Amino acid sequence: MSHEAYELKAEAREQVGKGSARAVRRDGKVPAVIYGDKQPPLAIALSYKEIYYKIHGGGFLTTVATIDVGGKKIQVLPKDYQLDPVKDTPLHVDFLRVGKNTEVNVQVPVHFINEELSPGIKRGGVLNIVRHEVEFHCPANAIPEFITIDLTGANIGDSIHISAVKLPAGVKPVIADRDFTIATIAGSAAMKPEIEAPAAEAEAEAEATEE
């Protein structure tokens, strides 16, 4: 999990629609809906402050939470949220009910380690990240916090594909029909030549022959 599981208290909403949502926001709360697991959708209102800090604290969409609705505790995974385009404040949240067999598609961040052990980067090559996140299909209660790419030994021109990543049990990439690229090591104008001395010697020999 990206972060430790947490619990939120909520109130059930009898009415739904734009008017009801505006009234909830005027009361300092955030309207939300819990759906899925073959049950009817449940409209709720959450604490604005709690949701604001959870959304902006990172890992919100990859962490299973418990919502206490009038004493009834429901396990959920946040699936989507809307923010005010100007103020960046939460306007609405969608939650998916999580049962013991629930599987979900989630975007998981990619982390890179051991850049200092990459010969290509040492020579001035550039890490070109093709995918900052990868979408995986996995159990809702076993979402990885991130996947790790080890750059040890990576050289100029190398590509790192999804097949090179060791994934936890039950975690599979949604793109299954090809071994897609996550990153490459590209050359740059600032690169150091790999072999300088032999080239200089060859040039000196050529000049001596001409003389």
Rank of each mutant, 00 (worst) to 15 (best):
M1I: 09
F136K: 11
I121P: 07
A199E: 11
I143W: 04
N141Y: 05
L46R: 05
D37L: 11
V33P: 04
D80N: 14
I182K: 04
S118G: 05
I185A: 04
K100F: 02
E11Y: 12
E210Q: 13
A5S: 15
V24T: 15
I162G: 06
G59F: 02
S2G: 11
T102S: 13
E194T: 14
S118I: 08
T102H: 05
H56G: 08
I121C: 03
P168N: 10
G153R: 10
Y52S: 10
I162L: 03
T152A: 10
K192Y: 00
E103K: 14
S118K: 02
R13M: 05
I162A: 01
A23Q: 12
I149E: 06
T152D: 08
Y52F: 15
V106I: 08
L151T: 11
A32N: 04
A10I: 11
K166H: 11
I160D: 04
K172E: 14
A190I: 00
I121V: 09
E205M: 13
F136M: 09
D27Y: 06
G71V: 12
P139T: 07
I162K: 07
H3Q: 14
I51D: 07
G120I: 07
T209Q: 09
G99H: 01
H56L: 10
D68L: 10
R25W: 06
I129H: 06
G57D: 04
I121A: 06
A204C: 03
D94M: 06
R178I: 02
H92F: 11
K72Y: 02
A45K: 05
A32E: 10
K49W: 00
A202T: 14
S118D: 02
